[in-house]
Design a protein around this nucleic acid. Structure first.
Lengths: 259, 259
DNA sequence: CAGTGGTCTAGACCACTTA
DNA sequence: AAGTGGTCTAGACCACTGA
């Protein structure tokens, strides 16, 4: 049950501050939204789960079905939920389609899309560097699990990448056999740790290949590479994974759609 | 006045094909949306214009205010309209804020945002290359207006770019004094030609600076540059401008937010 | 104060999926 | 046929802006 907008509005008109919801007016549908998000953060609703029907939720929260609908529509617009007429509303998953069209932006010169395969070079648990602490929001002295891998498209190596996550948050990850690390790590974070990645910030720049890059990609050192510095955030907007990719863009491009 | 959903639905249940709206069911609010978009394409509603109120529009189209609201909310979500409580609904413009946060993605290493200044190197009208014909969807033998410029941030040259638009569509543009070409060309397209840019596809890759790049940017040839190949589309999804930018990413990054 | 968009409700009916 | 989301309506009231 949530505070009604009417009551909230009235209490705001009064001269006394409204302690019941602190910062003032907050629409019902946003209060409901906060609650839904919290249930995804908590793991009560996990990726792929089916939500109760609109009427069921409305009754549970003591609001109208139209208000719940507004909440669900917003969450669907943010790709946190998927709605299907006749079937129901589901928590979004990092299935191959979503990975391909939403989170992976390298496309072929001809516009073709495919996910690269991965070969893990190393997987270590070690003290976080100061950059890693900063980007991942870790306390000084924290450990990270660091994965290095080479990714191929059409059997040609095109990406070398370094991935860092909190060792505390992903404690089991240091023990998984490297050959069992999946290509799509976000799916793993979801399934094994209940962590939903829903947002990422990517900083792109052009850099020269160093000797290691050159060796892994089979090119000359000094050639230009597309560097992608990605911080992936969870539903509660906490940083989860920091990934640095260097990509050969002779046969591929990074596609950024605006609007 | 538009076809009601009820009627459309019923006519679809009948065995005979429904000729009245061709491809079958189309929700009222989408029919209204099509009409609104058409009015922006036609130039009946120009950037900055205030729309009639929801009730006024509802009466005009013979639908309820809630249906108009759904249309307006969708268009606002697409950044085609801007809604302001108490003031009204307006056609979106390419004001500096929008340009800075929505269409220009180079940010400082420290996360700072600023628009670069522009210095035009050349502005010519000439036959389109086959690439330009293809990207801009021009008939063979069409002319383009081509602008080359260098852009600076904090008085340091960081971008060299080549811009091509249809000479037919932007006929006056060949005669504007080059010193009067504004930094924000999208604003010019809006104001002088009624063309609203609302979407862009950017293809990013890392390239080596050639001799010309190097000269304009004051760097050594061969250094890596961030290339941005951008096609800007109008409200009716027709290509309007093709722009090729090469950027120095030593002090800056291209920021891509996912979700 | 009038006018505008924002929130919320209640109810009807349509479209789609599944059994 | 039952259950779900999708569309549409009508009406009440709130929040914000500007004359």
């Amino acid at each position: 049950m949530v505070e009604t907008a009417k009551k909230t509005g009235k209490s705001r008109d009064a001269k006394l501050p409204d302690l019941s919801d602190g910062i003032g007016f907050r629409p019902l549908y946003k209060q409901v939204k906060d609650s839904f998000i919290q249930q995804m953060v908590n793991g009560d609703w996990r990726p792929g789960d089916k939500l109760p029907s609109e009427f069921e939720l409305a009754a549970r929260y003591g609001v109208s079905q139209g208000t719940v609908r507004k909440t669900l529509d917003e969450l669907a617009a943010q790709n946190l939920l998927v709605r299907q007429q006749g079937r129901g509303t589901f928590v979004a998953t990092h299935n191959p389609d979503r990975a391909l069209f939403h989170f992976f932006h390298l496309v072929g010169d001809d516009g073709s899309r495919q996910l690269p395969t991965s070969r893990v070079l190393s997987r270590v648990k070690r003290l976080a560097t100061s950059d890693e602490e900063k980007r991942l929001g870790l306390k000084p002295g924290s450990n990270v699990i660091c994965i290095e891998r080479v990714r191929e498209m059409s059997a040609i190596p095109v990406i070398v990448e370094t991935i860092a996550v909190s060792a505390k948050r992903f404690s089991g990850l240091a023990k998984v056999p490297v050959e069992d690390l999946p290509n799509n790590l976000y799916e793993l974070y979801e399934e094994k740790y209940g962590v939903i990645i829903y947002q990422a910030e990517e900083y792109l720049s052009a850099v020269a290949a160093d000797a290691t890059d050159a060796e892994h990609l089979g090119i000359e050192p000094g050639l230009p590479l597309q560097q992608i510095d990605r911080l992936a955030l969870s539903v509660d907007r906490r940083p989860v994974e920091w990934r640095m990719s260097r990509c050969l863009t002779t046969q591929h491009r990074y596609l950024s759609l605006i609007d």
